[in-house]
Design a protein around this nucleic acid. Sequence first.
RNA 1: GCCGGAGUGGCGGAACGGUAGACGCAAGGGACUUAAACUCCCUGGUCCUUCGGGGCGUGUGGGUUCGACUCCCACCUCCGGUACCA
Length: 843
Amino acid sequence: MARRHDRLPDRYHAVEVEERWQRIWADRRAFMGATISRDGAQAQRSDRPKSYVLEMLPYPSGEIHMGHVKNYTMGDVIAHHRRRCGAAVFHPMGYDAFGLPAENAAIRTGEHPAIVTARNIARIRDQLKRLGFAIDWDTEISTADPEYYRWTQWIFLRMFERGLAERREAAVNWCPKDQTVLANEQVVDGHCERCGTEVELRQLTQWFLRITDYAQALLDDMDLLDDWPERVLAMQRNWIGRSEGARVLFRTEDGAHEIPVFTTRADTLFGATFFLVAPEHPLLATLVEGRSEADAVLGYARAAARASLADRSATDKPKTGVFTGRYVVNPINGEQIPVWVAEYVLMDYGTGAIMAVPGHDERDFAFARQHDLPIRRVVADPDTAADAPLEQAYAGSGRLVNSGFLDDLAVDEATQAAAEWLAGRGVGQATVGYRLRDWLISRQRYWGVPIPVIHCPVCGPVAVPDSQLPVLLPDVDDYAPKGQSPLATSAEFLTATCPSCGGPARRETDTMDTFVDSSWYYLRYTAPHLSSAPFERELADYWLPVDQYIGGVEHAVLHLLYARFFTKVLNDLDLVGFREPFARLFTQGMIYRDGAKMSKSKGNVVSPDDIVDTYGADTLRLYVLFMGPAADDIEWSDRGVVGARRFLDRLWGLARSADPGSLVDRPDPATLAGSPHSLELLRRAEATIAKVSLDIGERFSFHTAIAAIQELVNACARHQSEQGSSERGGQVAFRYAVQTAVSVLFPFAPHVACELWDALGGEALWEVSWPTADPALLVRDQVTLVVQVNGKVRDRLEAPAGLADIAALELVRARPKVIGALDGKRIVREIVVADRLVNFVVK
RNA sequence: GCCGGAGUGGCGGAACGGUAGACGCAAGGGACUUAAACUCCCUGGUCCUUCGGGGCGUGUGGGUUCGACUCCCACCUCCGGUACCA
């Protein structure tokens, strides 16, 4: 390649340098060749190890923010490092392009969401390119592209065939502002995750994906996720909420109905003094039919149904309830206990009915006190009498009392004995409950994937045949939500023929939750243009699981759980050969400013574009990673950016003083004998290689890697000012050190690194093998020995490395400070840590 | 309440059980400049000091160890997740 300058300009003009190298990389297709051919037909056969580096795909809201910059810079650093270490790297990009913001913009302006989205994508693509990310742009995808979403529909149909997608009535979360239902995971503290509006519960017929069928698998396979952050695993574990217990059958006093309950405390069955059902319990109306209590009970249930989710789930209010006038029989002792309806019993956990044991459950205790129901002790610790009254629920350990055949057993023994007893009589059995609920995916909104189903009055819901996919989004006049999907306003779309009986039918008008789209995108990248299938198994099995996935922790129980679920389903359908999509996960921290998350409404946003304009993309990339540990939340500092730029300026100046010339090999330390500054610089260069390799490759500690490069650059400057260059071999040592700094800086600041590498006489730095340190130069020949007396530092001295303990002691004892510190003391013990310290224990 | 994580200078932070504060920001002093900016050099935890040094310092209190920011126990504070889940 022709040199552009005879020498580097004396000033570093970042934007110019960056535009130049972005052009060169694009022209040379620098980051694309290693992946897959355009039609996705064939993976490039390679004996190199593969590395799939992926960051969570952005929602194209119009602008990228600092969080994106940090996210994609981290991925880019890893991709560059792995590529130069010899891996075949796959580093794709796409857009999570369906969703509410574009649709809401369309409602305001009348512009089609597709146009809004296309414009936003173009803008974001430009911004990403301007930051110089080494992305394989040939594999770019958009989830709103019909060629993508036809496969989202296809996967849905495979789930439908297997009974994993089903339509059923349930109490669901309804956001009155967005006019749509929401998944459980999208409700935060009773409010809509998107817009913050209080969520209502509505009884509706909706589409669900049966993620609960996979609750145990999602839990079990966490064993495969060693390299996931503990907190994400903990959140998922928590969310799935497995609890072991028993299902116990209670029968109404007239024997007409069976009502099962779930309990984790089967041992306390003798303590059940009343029975509660949720206001939504299907048997409730039947139980009170024709009774004087009916009005009160059903009125109570209706009021509960009207309450908001936040009100329903508040724990600090009185425990309300109404007696139904009915009784059930406790199977363990034949006792008849009254049935109440109570709001605190949830229809969607367990069976929607519970046996209440006020003596040993805090909530039941409160309810009993409130409504004057009996409280009976069935567990007592060794210091407590069996008939001691309870002033509060006792949930501790102890032995059973007042419990017939369970008396004297410990809690866990009794739990098991009770379960066995119930099972033996066919009135119960040990079982496992989960908190996880099925994934509600219907959305009554326009800008999403149409659910590919036709409703036939004769056949019911029928799958759209694969040959008719994609079911395209129709054009509509008005995108505004009106409690049903805008798709329903298109008569043409609505009218369909039943694929099964050929009769007139009606098309499903709901669209899918956008988290469905992003549950499989990482597979599509491996064959982004394939027209015969969502992906090709051979390619998917080659590239996946993702070797390094990077994103925000806010998706811990959303995207990350859903994607794991999808992968398991696809594995069970024998479409992929792996059970987990992301082998290693890194969750980055958020960037704050003025103590708050950056947001337009708070007016504390720093635009990446502005920083690039002022300092350059390399400075921005360097700074977002230098700010602090990548996993931590961190406060943005405008001044801090300047430091990153100053560092690049300093390196530029040093490279300029070595330019022009050609690359040098690592000098042989023997040639630097008698050149202490230069030998020291060489050692520093080697130590930097080792440190940066470790920090990028294993520790995810980018800020310390950058600090190490800064130390090397400082050492180069010192070498210059200390006349190190005039030493024998000093010029070569200096060139080598600068060259090394540029080489290892490359993943962080690729443009300026390429420019300087070019000036130093190198070529195509992105393809140059990652350097390895000479181990011989990593061991020091001079060390600082620390002398302690009783663990307190008393002296420090330079000594040759590798001294025997005796020699070290002798050397240290001769030091005046040490003599002074030991004067008049009796040495009890001497500890020598080779090449590190000597500690005298004295009295 | 339960689960997870974190507490180190003015600030972001560093430190295989072995020199606490690397690197950077901000600050003070100096050089350069008519001046400022840029750049470069020096200082920098804290208290005492006879200027040699010395005491105290990593949220608190204990413990293990020759030696603890690091390991163990108890606690405090903050952040995140979750919560009538039976």
